[in-house]
Design a protein around this nucleic acid. Structure first.
Lengths: 332, 332
DNA sequence: CTGTTAGCGCGTTCAC
DNA sequence: GTGAACGCGCTAACAG
C-alpha cells in the first residue's frame, strides 16, 4: 500500500509553498491565476484528495452529522435516513449512521462514538427517555426526530391528532366498535381514544391488541396477534388502527387466515404511510417526511453554524390520512 | 459551545504528562497502577473521549469502512447494511454509508469522499462496470458485494444457479410455459433460460416482461407490468421468476386486478428472500446474507490489516429456494 | 500575492 | 515508569 499523497507533495510538484496549495483548494481569493491553474493541474493528475481528518483537527469541525435510529427494518426509518443523507449531503455534510436497536445502552455508546468522531451535531430517534437528560447536558447540537421532548430541540408529529384522525374516519364510516394494535399507550392511542369519547363512543380495552415487541420482528407481531385471536375467539370490533404499517400488514395476513374480509368485515388504518402501505393498498396516516427532515436539518445546522437562542424548539407536524382500500367501506 | 476537553487537560488534572494519559488509554503496559487509576477516574469524571480525527491523522488509520450501495428501498440492501454495520462494529470499525442511486458519477463521488475521510477500506454494491477499473487502480482495499468481478475482490451469489433453481422448480411442478420479469439479461436470467433448455423447454422471449427501472420506484415497475398486460391481452405463461421480491409483489398486485389467481393460474418465485417475501408468502431465492457479510468483511479486514497475496478473491455463494405459497401448486 | 511559522490533539520516539 | 520533543496534514496568522 503506497502512502497517500499530501498537500506538501503537491506543492513540491508545482513549485509553490504548501499553504498556497491550501489557499487554492479552499478557493481563497488573492492567488495568481497562472499558479492556481498549474496547481490544480497537478492535483488533477495525481488524483489528490485533501485529508479530512487533518481538516477536522485544524478547523475543529468535521462536517459530519451523526444519526442514531432505533431500527431500520421499518421502511419508514429507511426513508427518513435516505432523505437525511441526501439533504445533508447537499449542504456539505456526511452522515455516520448508527442503530441503537431500541437499546439505551447502545444508544449512549453511539453518542459517545459520535463525540469521538467529532461530529458537528447529531439527530436521534430516541430509544426512550433514558438518555435525554445526558444528551441535553452534552453541549453538542442535537435534534430529536419523529418524537418531541421539551428539554431538547425536536421535530415530531402531532401523534394525538393522528389518533384522532383515524378515529374520526372510522366514526364517519359508521363504525361503532373500535380496535387498536400497538405496543404502548402513547399519544397516538390517547388521541384515538379521546376522539372516540368526544363522539360518544367508549374504547373497550379488551379490543386493544397488546404487542410485546415493536416492528423489529414480524414473527413476534404475528405471534402476538394470533395469540389474541385464539384468546378472544371472535373479534368485537369492525375497524382497527395500528401503531405502524408493518403491524397493519400482519393483522391483514392473520385476518386472511381466519377468512375475515378486509375491509368488509374489518377496516384498517395503519401508520407511517410507508411503501408497504402503498403496495398493499392499506390506508395509513402519513407523516410529512420531507418537511420533517428539512426542518430537523435546518434547526441542527442553525445550532451548528450560528449562535442561536438557547430556547428549545419543538415542532409538531401535522399528520394526514391517506385513504386506500382497507378503510374504503361504509357500514350502514 | 464550550471547547472540547483534550488529553493534555486530563494530564494536568491528574498531575501527569500527556503521554502517560495516552499510554493508559491505549492500554500500554508499564504504567504505575496507582497513576492509571487516578487518570481513569479523571477521565470518567469529566467524560473525556479521545479525538478520533487526531488519532486518524497520527495513526494513518481511521477505523472507518465506507459502504456504497445503489439504493436502499430494496429491503435486501437494508438487511445487508444492517448486518455490515453490526459486524463491523464488533471488530472496531464504523461505517460511512453512501447511496449511489444507480448513478456511476455519484458512485465515484462517494469513493472520493471515502478517500478524503481516510476510510481504511470500502465495500461497494457497484452501479455497473463503469468505475471498476479506477477502483482497482486505487491502492485502497475494496470488496464488491452481491456481485462478482475479476479485477477486484468480490463476494457474490451464483446467479446462474439461482436462475436454474427457479427453472427446475417450475419444471418439477409441471409448468411448460415460463415467464420472467426483470431489467436486464443477467446471469439470473441466463441460468433460468439454460436450465429450461437443458430440460427440453425453450424460453419464449415474448414472455420476458422488460422493466425500464429497477426497484427504486414501485410505481414504475407497476406501470411497466400493466403496460405489458395491455399489450399482450392474455398471458402465455403459467409461472414467472422475478428479478427481486418487489417486482414479484407488484406482479401479484397487477395480477390480482386482472383476477389472475396466484398460484393456481400463475406461480411466482421472487428473489432476495426479503421480509417482503416472508410477509406476502412469496417463494423466493434466498441469498445467505450473514455469510456474505462475514466473508466480505473478512476479506476486507485481511487486506487492511495484513499483507495478503495480490491475487483477487472471488467468492460465489450458493442460493437456495425458500418455498412459500406462490409456487405451491402442481400443474398436472 | 506568496512563503514562513505555528499549532489543532494525539501517539511515539528517546532520554531520564 | 515518566516526561520532553516531534510530527501526522492541514489552516490561519503574519511577514515580506
Amino acid at each position: 500500500m503506497t502512502r497517500k499523497i499530501t498537500m506538501r507533495e503537491i506543492a513540491k510538484l508545482a513549485n509553490v509553498s504548501q499553504p498556497t496549495v491550501s489557499r487554492i483548494i479552499n478557493g481563497n481569493k488573492g492567488v495568481n491565476e497562472e499558479i492556481a491553474k498549474r496547481v490544480l493541474k497537478v492535483i488533477e493528475e495525481v488524483g489528490y484528495v485533501p485529508n479530512k481528518a487533518a481538516q477536522t483537527l485544524k478547523r475543529n469541525q468535521s462536517n459530519i452529522i451523526g444519526i442514531s435510529v432505533t431500527e431500520i427494518y421499518n421502511p419508514y426509518f429507511v426513508e427518513l435516513i435516505d432523505h437525511l443523507e441526501s439533504e445533508a449531503r447537499k449542504k456539505g455534510y456526511n452522515i455516520i449512521l448508527h442503530n441503537s436497536k431500541h437499546n439505551p445502552i447502545i444508544e449512549w455508546e453511539n453518542i459517545q462514538n459520535f463525540i469521538a468522531r467529532q461530529i458537528d451535531g447529531f439527530i436521534i430517534v430516541p430509544t426512550g427517555e433514558y438518555n435525554l437528560q445526558r444528551i441535553s447536558e452534552l453541549d453538542i447540537p442535537a435534534v430529536i426526530i419523529t418524537q418531541n421532548a421539551k428539554t431538547l430541540d425536536s421535530v415530531g408529529l402531532n401523534h394525538l391528532k393522528a389518533g384522532m384522525i383515524a378515529a374520526e374516519n372510522f366514526i364517519h364510516s359508521g363504525h361503532i366498535k373500535f380496535g387498536y394494535i400497538g405496543t404502548s399507550f402513547d399519544d397516538k392511542f390517547h388521541g384515538y381514544e379521546s376522539a372516540l369519547a368526544e363522539n360518544g363512543f367508549e374504547f373497550d380495552h379488551k379490543n386493544y391488541i397488546q404487542l410485546k415487541e415493536t416492528s423489529k420482528n414480524n414473527f413476534l407481531i404475528r405471534r402476538d396477534i394470533k395469540n389474541y385471536f385464539q384468546k378472544v375467539e371472535s373479534l368485537d370490533f369492525t375497524c382497527v388502527f395500528t401503531e405502524n404499517d408493518i403491524i397493519a400488514i400482519e393483522f391483514m395476513r392473520a385476518a386472511e387466515e381466519r377468512n375475515i374480509r378486509i375491509p368488509e368485515d374489518i377496516s384498517i388504518i395503519g401508520f407511517d404511510d410507508t411503501y408497504l402501505a402503498k403496495i398493499m393498498g392499506i390506508s395509513s396516516i402519513h407523516q410529512p417526511i420531507d418537511e420533517m427532515v428539512n426542518t430537523t436539518l435546518e434547526i441542527l445546522l442553525n445550532r451548528i453554524e450560528n449562535e442561536v437562542s438557547p430556547d428549545k424548539i419543538n415542532i409538531h407536524l401535522e399528520p394526514t390520512l391517506i385513504e386506500r382500500k382497507t378503510s374504503m367501506f361504509r357500514r350502514k
